[in-house]
C-alpha cells in the first residue's frame, strides 16, 4: 500500500509546484469580482429607476398637479387628482373584498388545513398568486363589466380584490403558523371554544404579522395596471360614485407615457413618483411594525 502511494503519479510534489494551483487560486479571486460585478449590474436598474422617477417627477412637479382634475394635454393646468381619487377608490374596494376573504381562507388553511384536500387548496392558492393579472382583468370584464353595462371603478376594485385574496390568504396562514402552539393549547386548556380560541388567541397573536402582510398586499394592488385596463378603464374626472369609470395612477402612467404629449409624459413621471412614495411608505411602515418578515414574491 505504501509503495503504491508513490507510484500513482500525483504524490507529494505535483500539487505544490504546479501552475494548476495558481490557476485555481486566481479563478477564485477573479470570481469574487465577477459575482460582485453581477450584483452591481443588477442594482444599476434599481438605482436608475428610482433616480429617474424622482428626477423627472420633481422636474415636472407643481402642487397644482395634485389638486387639479385631468384634462387635455394642451391645458397645462390639468393634474392627476382624478387618478389619485380613482386609485383610492379601487384600492379601498379591493381591500374590502380581499382582506376579509383572504384572512378567512388563510385561517381555514392554518387551523383546519392539516389534510391533503387543504394541500391541494394551497397549490391552487399559490397558482392564483401567480396568475397574470391581466387575466383577472379579462375575467372581471366578462363577469362584471358586461353585466353593469359599462366600465366602473367598482369592477376595477373587484379585480384588485380577487388578486388580493390569495396574497392575503398565504400571508395569513404563514403568520398563524408562527404563533406558538403553546398559546393555542393554553386556550383550549382553559375551555375556550374553537371560535373563541381562533379569534382571541390565534388571530390576536398573529395580528401584527397579518397586518404587515396585508399592507404589502395593498401596496401590490395599488401598483397594478393590467387588471384595471378593461375594468376601471379611464376618465379625466374623479368618479362621483363607484359605478363611474375612473382613472387610476398606474393606468394614467401607462396612457400618458405612450402619448405623444410632453406635458402628459411629465404627469406620468409625477404619478410614478407618487406611486413609488406610497409604496415606499408602506414598505417602511411594514418594516417598522414587523422587522422579522421580509418576504416578496
Amino acid at each position: 500500500m505504501i509503495e503504491e502511494r508513490a507510484s500513482n503519479g500525483f504524490g507529494k510534489d505535483s500539487y505544490t509546484s504546479s501552475r494548476h494551483w495558481k490557476t485555481r487560486l486566481n479563478i477564485d479571486r477573479i470570481m469574487f469580482f465577477v459575482t460582485a460585478a453581477c450584483f452591481l449590474l443588477v442594482l444599476i436598474p434599481l438605482f436608475s429607476i428610482l433616480f429617474q422617477v424622482f428626477y423627472n417627477g420633481l422636474r415636472a412637479f407643481k402642487f397644482a398637479v395634485l389638486l387639479n382634475e385631468g384634462g387635455s394635454p394642451v391645458s397645462t393646468i390639468s393634474g392627476i387628482r382624478h387618478a389619485i381619487t380613482g386609485t383610492i377608490y379601487a384600492t379601498l374596494i379591493g381591500s374590502a373584498i380581499g382582506i376579509p376573504a383572504g384572512i378567512i381562507v388563510g385561517t381555514y388553511l392554518a387551523e383546519f388545513g392539516n389534510n391533503s384536500f387543504a394541500d391541494i387548496l394551497r397549490i391552487i392558492i399559490n397558482t392564483m398568486v401567480s396568475i397574470p393579472t391581466i387575466i383577472t382583468g379579462v375575467v372581471v370584464w366578462a363577469f362584471v363589466v358586461t353585466r353593469v353595462g359599462h366600465f366602473s371603478v367598482l369592477a376595477g376594485g373587484i379585480a384588485l380584490g380577487l388578486i388580493m385574496i390569495p396574497l392575503v390568504a398565504r400571508t395569513t396562514e404563514e403568520m398563524i403558523m408562527l404563533v406558538s402552539p403553546i398559546y393555542i393549547e393554553a386556550g383550549y386548556a382553559l375551555g375556550l371554544t374553537r371560535m373563541r380560541n381562533t379569534i382571541s388567541i390565534v388571530l390576536a397573536n398573529a395580528s401584527k404579522g397579518i397586518a404587515s402582510g396585508v399592507l404589502l398586499a395593498v401596496a401590490r394592488i395599488m401598483g397594478e395596471t393590467a387588471p384595471l385596463l378593461f375594468t376601471a378603464f379611464f376618465s379625466q374626472a374623479s368618479p362621483s360614485n363607484i359605478f363611474d369609470p375612473a382613472a387610476t395612477l398606474p393606468v394614467l402612467i401607462y396612457n400618458y407615457a405612450i402619448s405623444p404629449f410632453e406635458y402628459w409624459q411629465g404627469l406620468a413621471w409625477i404619478a410614478a413618483m407618487v406611486l413609488i412614495l406610497l409604496n415606499l411608505d408602506i414598505l417602511f411602515i411594514t418594516r417598522l411594525m414587523f422587522p422579522e418578515t421580509h418576504q416578496s414574491d
Binding site: 443588477v42 422617477v53 401590490r220 401598483g223 402612467i253 401607462y254 409604496n279
Partner: peptide, 27 residues
C-alpha cells in the same frame, strides 16, 4: 445581507408600469 435583501425586495416591489415608463424613456 439584510441591506442586500432589502434592495432586492425594493426591486420586486416597483410596479411593472414604472418599469415600462423607465423602459420607454431611459432604457
Amino acid at each position: 445581507r439584510v441591506t442586500v435583501r432589502n434592495s432586492l425586495d425594493l426591486l420586486a416591489g416597483i410596479p411593472s408600469v414604472i418599469y415600462g415608463l423607465w423602459g420607454i424613456f431611459v432604457l
